[in-house]
């Protein structure tokens, strides 16, 4: 029983949220906050793999998210909606349910390939120089999409709503909420399985001492390749979900500001802690919504809070511990394999 409590409560939670959303107990605004939370959790846990577990300083996560968002949006728009340039829909709307996850995964796959731009230089360099490479990669992605007129360029790209409506046409439940929740659970599960696996133990080994890791028979180049591609691929998944929540994407919503936001979430939660990254993503999203009345002062208050955090608890909320390390009694209620 103990083995399954967590899984069961998770799925019950997802089911309960969907039911609540279906019968209008939680309104549209709350739903969108929850969805944003899910996307942020995916982003911060995936960046945590590189910045936290591997100890690199990647500050271009927004770029990979952008790749995923655009690729999956282009696929769904191509398939399900009428677009001036891409032409009439290729598939009937009833196939939307089937094609949507495929589009999401295609976006994630392309984003993972884009991660190669960062992964290959990381063989030779690390630290500050790698930070620049990620930064440059972010700028390159943004300005490449800015220059592609066929997908709207700087004006942005829209038409993803047709897919969501297609799914609604089959069965009228809050599909996007469901997809985001599943996406979140899937990403956190995948990352957790990876980090705790024998193969994944190489990632924190690189963080501690790359040369020693190599001597201890960790194939560091392969590890870096896997970590960067996994991280950027999951960011691409987050991007695809984000695009379909909003129904509109603009290259400039994925610029260095977005990457900074994700970094803030990672360091707020604590490096190398999945539950910390999840917690801080939730906290950060709530904070953004609570501080909304402050308008522009919001962006003065949040950095200030983070600076204070760095001064007084520089290791973040959780440090590099998981929730079950801090509260050992929780282990009574759930355990992971």
């Amino acid at each position: 029983m103990q083995k399954h409590t967590f899984t069961i409560s998770l799925f019950v939670g997802i089911f309960a949220l969907t039911v609540l959303a279906q019968f209008g107990v939680i309104n549209q605004y709350l739903q969108s906050v929850i969805m944003l939370m899910g996307v942020n959790i995916i982003l911060s846990t995936s960046l945590n793999l590189v910045n936290g577990y591997m100890g690199e300083f990647s500050c271009g996560h927004g770029g990979f998210m952008c790749v995923g968002a655009y690729v999956s949006s282009v696929i769904t728009v191509l398939c399900f909606s009428k677009n001036q340039i891409l032409g009439a829909p290729l598939l009937p709307p009833s196939l939307a349910l089937l094609a949507f996850p495929i589009a999401l995964f295609a976006g994630a796959a392309v984003a993972a390939v884009a991660g190669l731009v960062v992964a290959i230089p990381s063989f030779k360099t690390r630290g500050d120089y790698l930070a620049i490479i990620t930064l440059a990669a972010n700028y390159i992605v943004i300005s490449a999409i800015d220059n592609m007129e066929i997908i709207g360029g700087p004006r942005g790209f829209m038409g993803m709503n047709a897919t969501v409506n297609g799914m609604k046409g089959l069965l009228d439940i809050p599909w996007m909420l469901l997809w985001v929740l599943f996406g979140t659970v899937f990403s956190v599960w995948l990352l957790r399985r990876f980090v705790t696996s024998t193969l994944g133990k190489g990632v924190p080994a690189i963080a501690q001492d790359e040369i020693a890791a190599e001597i201890m028979s960790v194939d560091t180049n392969r590890m870096k390749l896997i970590a960067f591609m996994l991280s950027s691929g999951i960011a691409g998944l987050a991007g695809g979900l984000f695009a379909h929540i909003l129904g509109y994407v603009n290259p400039h919503s994925f610029d260095i500001m977005k990457s900074t936001e994700v970094m803030v979430m990672v360091y707020l939660g604590g490096m190398g802690s999945l539950s910390g990254a999840t917690l801080s993503a939730v906290l950060f999203t709530v904070l953004l919504e609570v501080l909304r009345p402050l308008e522009i002062w919001k962006w003065v208050v949040i950095p200030l809070l983070l600076i204070l955090l760095m001064q007084f608890r520089p290791e973040g909320i959780m440090g590099n511990k998981e929730l079950s390390d801090l509260f050992p009694k929780l282990k009574k209620f759930y355990s992971f394999k």
């Binding site: 490096m271 522009i296 983070l306 001064q311």
Partner: peptide
Amino acid sequence: RPLRRKGADRLYVVITALMAGLMLENGNLA
């Protein structure tokens, strides 16, 4: 300086710098 005194990892100083930049920017805007 307080961070340096505490001997914090330089990564935290970098984050602080990033946040200080954001604060200057948006403080000015506000």
